[in-house]
């Protein structure tokens, strides 16, 4: 569904990604793990058009999207729940969800049942249902994370990019977030999950990539990465 070939990207003169190639097949949950500053967020930003790739190809469902502005990419069905959540603080929880469906409400994507999907988000994230009229900026960090995920899902995306949904959450909330991810996986939502929390990510994913200094250094099924000695030593906090 999502295919990246030989992607180079960075910020101005700072080159971050040095030829990244990866694939997210339809209905699969793929995870991208790596240490701080490896380039995971940069990868997602290049995919969703928040930064322009310098070179390489990105295709979504066979259509080239590399270099398009982010609004055009979203309209083609790529949803991005960004690092640090980036919810709209002065708007209500409900309006944040409506904005997630902006391309559906304005004719750029099939409309479907927007109200029904909002109800579904409230069912998946009951904490949001209780706070539907509350301004998003007044939510707790965990609630904002759930809102960011729900907002991205409101696109009814072809592929969902999740950037560290566990960041800054209590262990209990991290668990809740991973339960939701597992549920989305069972509903065949195609996802690319960036995580620092590698053990949990590999537990739930089908396939994984490991990134170091802007290059992929390992890849394979999640099960094989979990037992790979190098991956275990570097990211799973155990050397045996």
């Amino acid at each position: 569904m999502l295919k990246i070939e030989n992607l180079f990207a960075g910020y101005g003169k700072v080159q971050v990604l040095h030829g990244v190639s990866m694939e997210v097949p339809t209905g699969m949950l793929v995870t991208l793990i790596g240490s701080n500053g490896a380039g995971k967020t940069t990868t997602l930003r290049a995919l969703s058009g928040m930064i322009k790739p310098e070179s390489g190809s990105i295709t979504l469902g066979g259509v080239e999207i590399g270099g398009l502005p982010s609004h055009a990419i979203a309209r083609k069905g790529l949803a991005h729940s960004p690092e640090a959540r980036r919810i709209f603080p002065t708007q209500s929880v409900f309006d944040n969800l409506l904005l997630g469906a902006f391309p559906r409400l304005t004719g750029a994507r099939p409309k479907g049942d927007v109200q029904g999907d909002i109800s579904k988000m409230f069912e998946i994230f009951p904490r949001l249902a209780e706070r539907r009229a509350q301004l998003a900026g007044t939510l707790s960090g965990g609630e904002q994370q759930m809102l960011a995920m729900a907002r991205a899902l409101m696109l009814q995306p072809e592929v969902l990019l999740l950037d560290e949904p566990s960041m800054g959450l209590s262990p209990k909330l991290v668990e809740e977030v991973f339960v939701v991810i597992a549920r989305l996986k069972s509903e065949k939502v195609t996802m690319l999950l960036v995580e620092q929390f590698a053990a949990a990510a590999l537990e739930v994913a089908d396939f994984g990539y490991v990134m170091e200094n802007g290059r992929l250094t390992a890849s394979g099924t999640a099960a094989s990465l979990k037992v790979d000695p190098a991956v275990r030593a570097a990211y799973l906090g155990s050397a045996h």
Binding site: M50, S70, A74, R86, G100, R151
Partner: peptide
Amino acid sequence: VATANDRDAAGLMG
């Protein structure tokens, strides 16, 4: 209003 809140995030909403 979304653009006023966070231009990049608004772009991600299409």
